[in-house]
Amino acid sequence: MTLLTRITGTSRLKYALLAVALLSLNACAALGKTDVYRDSNMDFGSLHTVAVLPFTNLTKEQQANDRVRDVFTSELMATGGIYVVPAGEVARGIVAAGAGSPSTPTSEEAMKICKNVKADALFTGTLREYGEIRSGTASANAIVLSIQLMEGQTGRVVWSADTTQGGITLKDRLLGGGGQPLNIVTQKAVNDLIKKLFE
């Protein structure tokens, strides 16, 4: 009888530990979602026309920001939900607004640019990693990108997200091959961000 009680007690302890572990995992999942910020008061359905400003390039690759911006613009327009102002029109709008740093505008500058290009909001972005990364003998392409959405009426940041795609996988370590092409990795990263935007 005593033995039976002891066993039951051990099982209870095990169940309790399992429950704690599951709760911890849940908490981890919640932590994973913090890479997206969304203003709860913003009506995203009211956005019909947006502008994509030049991205800040923190990588060693020249023109990497322009390449990623172009993919982002194309993919955003391909969703069919939003019209994206052409890059030439955005450049004209930036000059007319007299924005000192086109990739990181102030709220006032953001409002001016939106007014100039007749956009409801604008996207700014920062490219933190782009290109080949190495670890030992293995190499693969990777991209780290963060995007912000600024509302045209107030200049507030209403949405923000980041993504990391590519990198060295177990397959790359075992078989080599250099991972996926950079264009594919970029497209995946951009699609991930757009998915987060429309969630």
Binding site: P86, A87, G88, E89, V90, A91, R92, V95
Partner: peptide, 10 residues
């Protein structure tokens, strides 16, 4: 002169 591509005005 087209900056970074074509604009509406262009």
């Amino acid at each position: 002169v087209m900056r970074e591509g074509i604009s509406t005005r262009d």
